[in-house]
Design a protein around this nucleic acid. Structure first.
Lengths: 99, 99
DNA sequence: GGGATACTTGCGCGTTTGCGCAAGTAATGT
DNA sequence: ACATTACTTGCGCAAACGCGCAAGTATCCC
């Protein structure tokens, strides 16, 4: 027995929370918008979003560990792309709710 | 002119970020699940989720200020309900992405 | 190997978050 | 008025976040 009220499905809620958290920063949303057109390098994104490269790298790490983006290495540059079209779906829905 | 790269649509991204942030906590997601069946009082939710009443009140304040839930007072008890069906839509999408 | 470019990681700092607990407000009943 | 129930708000603290900056790793070219 659990003892706790609604322990069932907790790990699933936890993973959902991680995804929502990844979406909870304007710069990261900006990244998703840029990636909507296709894959981009870290420096491209850094330029698009308007932040320093290390900062962008950290934001991408958050998105990546939430499973929202995927990295592909080509030579010395790393290209990121959306790992799932539903991510944009979710963002659009949230924007719609935001009105 | 802005000077900053992608300043356009920033306020909209900000509002979207606030909504995503509201969805980024397991207990708050749990609240949404409870509210999916209809309105519930603060103490009901506190029991469902398994936390203290003041803590629940704070979580509800986050959801409310993000515009995801609405409060209705009946006598001394306050009932909360989802303010928009699309909120559940968004949660379902996120769960789907979480796999 | 040496140097340049592209990205990641570690560190320090100020801000925000979630929590428990106490105190405050609001409405009901006696 | 007093007590009770229902909820909100303030406070203090530990943990997490976002950021800038320096240092590290990786890849390419000469």
């Amino acid at each position: 027995m659990t003892g706790a009220p609604i322990a069932l499905g907790e790990p699933e809620r936890q993973r959902s929370a991680v995804i929502a958290r990844a979406l909870s920063d304007p710069k990261r949303l900006c990244v998703l918008e840029s990636l909507a057109d296709g894959e981009r390098s870290v420096s491209d994104l850094s330029r698009d979003v308007g932040c320093q490269v290390p900062n962008m790298s950290q934001h991408l790490a958050v998105l990546r560990s939430a499973g929202l983006v995927t990295a592909r290495r080509d030579g010395s540059t790393v290209y990121y792309r959306l790992s799932d079209a539903r991510v944009l779906e979710a963002y659009r829905l949230i924007k719609a709710i935001a009105g």
